[in-house]
Design a binder for these strands. Structure first.
Lengths: 209, 209
DNA sequence: TAGATTGTTAATCGATTAACAATC
DNA sequence: TAGATTGTTAATCGATTAACAATC
């Protein structure tokens, strides 16, 4: 069983979003070309990408829309929702707490942590904020595998090490640093600056009229 | 002048962050190996990446830290701050309004827009929220080139088209859809779901003990 | 000088794209 | 059937990695 290439994996949510929109329009079959047109991709690439889900289409007809959605959800594991903690309730952390869509993406935020005593016990979007000291016991007792790290850069590494020692298996890292953790721990970086880098650089090259 | 490969461009902010940390530690020269070790990369790759900034290092000594920082900032165009509008002040938009670091990343948010009449006129982090109707006149009068799009998916495409018609040259897109805009318009996607896709997929493959 | 580190040229690797047979 | 669309195998392209000469 070969691993799915990362570029492919990053495109799968795009397909899924589009197909879910189309489902609402009562469409039943889609061709790779139709998907490619909509997303500005190549039909061959779409077919190759979709093949990693194990789905097979019908020549001349295309792919069964609902089957395809199921296959994509399953490949992304968005059916099996993982419970997660958010560490850090600054502006970004709070925004993520307010974001209800994560459940659709396989993640269920069930608690938040901060060391600002003012925030403790308050709720954001129905999710309670606990003190950092409670992390260990709650991670172990609730068997939490995933942490969303939205703390300032200068404390991120130390916190990541704590999280790992408490048993966290995957970190979604929004802190603007590179986390050094054991290879067995999954780290997915979501730093805004990386995305912005592309934008600002391209902008400087573009001819602004 | 060849374009900088995108993978390289995405690593440049990592280098920059690290080097700025080191600057505070009174380090003056850095080797590609030291950078590579810290970021879990290959020294050869670091050298190749840095070469796109035009900087030259000294054999046996390494790279001048401050010179390197300047070169990276210049390549990313983070010296020339662009003024930008945020469209949509839901939870994510508000979080971005509260994020003061964008100035370091070459972006200066100077106004926000929403069609929720309750929010109009209020300020978040010193930035005023205007009605959507004001977009056209303000974009043209203030000669704004960059828009941060943090609106729900169902209105994102229509808004993007408006923005483009008003003269916006670059869109930082957080809406969970693929924007169809003319090729001349720069779109950088920052959808959380794409990043999360990698995490949930890897998690499903991992052996959780 | 000797040795560490750079920068470049060549080799490898992996993803994208092209070609085309299979099939409904 | 004819034609559209799939799925696979091969070719291309670009990024990463390796090898190594240059140099401080």
């Amino acid at each position: 069983m070969k691993a799915i290439p990362e570029p492919t994996l990053r495109r799968l949510p795009k397909y899924l979003h589009l197909l879910m929109e189309w489902r609402n329009n009562n469409i039943n079959y889609v061709s790779s070309q139709a998907i490619a047109d909509e997303l500005g991709l190549d039909a061959i690439q779409v077919r190759k990408d979709l093949s990693v889900t194990g789905i097979v289409g019908k020549p001349k007809v295309g792919f069964d829309l609902r089957e395809l959605i199921r296959a994509l959800c399953s490949t992304l594991n968005w059916n099996n929702v993982s419970e997660a903690f958010i560490i850090g309730t600054g502006s970004l952390g709070s925004a993520l707490l307010g974001y209800k869509k994560f459940n659709d993406y396989g993640l269920n935020i069930i608690a938040a942590f901060d060391n600002d005593s003012e925030k403790l016990g308050t709720k954001v979007n129905g999710i309670e904020i606990f003190p950092i000291e409670k992390l260990e016991i709650m991670i172990t007792q609730l068997k939490i595998n995933v942490a969303v790290l939205t703390v300032p850069g200068d404390v991120a590494q130390a916190l990541a090490e704590k999280l790992v020692s408490y048993g966290i298996k995957a970190i979604w890292n929004f802190a603007p640093i590179h986390l050094k953790v054991p290879d067995s721990v999954i780290v997915e970086n979501a730093q805004l600056s990386h995305s912005l880098a592309i934008l600002t650089h391209r902008l400087s090259k573009a001819n602004l009229t």
